[in-house]
Nucleic acid binder design. Structure first.
Lengths: 158, 158
DNA sequence: TTTTAAATTAGAATGATTATAATTTAATAA
DNA sequence: TTATTAAATTATAATCATTCTAATTTAAAA
């Protein structure tokens, strides 16, 4: 487990290496992302959290920073069909997005950290001549625990 | 291969069976969808095509019809991260969405008709207690043919 | 044919995201 | 250290997809 400061340093270096500047606003945004690694925050969510500690930041800056970090593959941009893009840090060594289980009752999103698609990606290459650089796998359904109650899992991972 | 009129009739029946009314606007919209089965059209795309034959239709009606058809599982609503929802008819017997290969160079979307996830869905159930009712699997990458040229595949399936 | 709830229309409203113009700042080099 | 300059930020306006609203029309049931 790498501590926040170290990861932050690494992210800044990658930013500078690609010719982008390191600014306090960007640092504040990255810090928030580091502290909410698996929260699937919307840009607005991130904005509000950053604003707590850096009240003069603008929403557009947060959007631009998230866009930049996505471009650098430091965060992943997700879309669960609710009209807002969501963002999570990409954990180190995970060049691929992880998979999601989306509960159709309570909307809860849970993650599968393993990569289950290595074999299928080879198949795609073989059968379709398509070279996969990333993937997205979401399962929609219900948790057994949801079925029998009032969505006890709701908010569990939030 | 079922002819358009037959499918249309079946769709209308399902609509009525669930207590919804069959209207000329809905029929016109379904007809467009039937004639563009794998085109991944946005609501705006559908609207423009319907308007050609039914100029007095409103955009909101198309939106509502697409929403209704999605609810009835007659169309699938997709999201490729470009800010617009896209819609395709669900082919009969395919209760699951099919998979997509999205070229990161030319943006072309190609489909994989098979269901490669049956085994993984059992695994999700076993390991996470999650009952899958649907899934979404997209591969992002490049077609070998794209890599070497000026995106020859672009528009091939459009 | 009458009734009535549902559907449609046109247009306004909303909400997420992006663009703009003026200002500030980070990084580079003198 | 200071001057320079391109990039970044701010505040706000604009845009675009989608949804809502109120008035009107229509499909289906009686």
């Amino acid at each position: 487990m790498v501590i926040v400061e170290e990861q932050l340093k690494s992210m800044k270096q990658q930013m500078i290496a690609k010719g982008y500047k390191s600014t306090v606003q960007r640092e504040a945004t990255m810090r928030v992302l580091l502290e909410h690694e698996r929260d699937h925050m919307s840009a607005e969510d991130v904005y509000m959290r950053v604003k707590e500690r850096f009240p003069e930041i603008g929403l557009a800056t947060v959007y631009r920073t998230l866009e930049l970090l996505t471009e650098l593959h430091l965060v992943e941009k997700m879309n669960f069909g609710d009209g807002v893009a969501r963002f999570d840090l990409r954990s180190e060594g995970h060049e691929h997005m992880h998979h999601h289980m989306i509960c159709s009752i309570c909307g809860e999103v849970e993650e599968i950290q393993d990569d289950w698609l290595i074999e299928l990606e080879q198949r795609v290459k073989r059968e379709y001549g398509f070279n996969v650089s990333d993937h997205r796998l979401d399962f929609i359904g219900t948790f057994t625990s949801c079925k029998h109650g009032d969505c006890q899992r709701h908010g569990e991972t939030a």
